[in-house]
């Protein structure tokens, strides 16, 4: 079963959000998503300074077998993107909750987000 990390929030589209209420929130995709996608070979991230809207596509993730839209789980302004995963997308597979983070957003509002327990239960993930 795919791993779900406890202290994160999750969207139904399999993005995770790490927020401590102060600085920008880090966003990535869950292991449920990376396991389903297979080996990720290309990632297209929103530009720094661009506005993203919760629930809307802001990029794409391409694996050997398929391509999926990347949805922003929050509304706000992109403050940083992870250049390391653009250069080596395999990091998203190997460490989806750590070094495989995708971008950071200065959050204006959150979309509907699930607790780790609810997300794991809904997607057969393992806490």
């Amino acid at each position: 079963m795919s791993k779900v990390v406890a202290d994160l929030l999750y969207s139904a589209e399999h993005e995770w959000v790490a927020t401590d209420g102060s600085g920008p929130a880090a966003i990535g995709v869950s292991a449920v998503a990376t396991d389903a996608l297979g080996d990720i070979v290309y990632v297209d991230l929103p530009e720094v300074g661009s506005a993203v809207t919760a629930g809307q596509s802001c990029g794409e993730i391409e694996s050997t077998k398929s391509v999926s839209d990347l949805y922003s789980p929050v509304t706000g302004e992109v403050t940083e993107i992870n250049d390391a995963v653009v250069a080596d997308p395999a990091v998203i597979n190997s460490d989806p909750y750590g070094a495989g983070w995708l971008f950071k957003v200065s959050v204006v509002s959150e979309g509907p987000l699930l607790s780790a327990a609810d997300y794991a239960a809904a997607n057969g993930g393992e806490l």
């Binding site: 297979g38 080996d39 070979v41 050997t64 077998k65 395999a90 597979n93």
Partner: peptide, 9 residues
């Protein structure tokens, strides 16, 4: 695939 389809390839 068993683990990574790229590794298998």
């Amino acid at each position: 695939k068993y683990d990574s389809e790229l590794a298998e390839h």
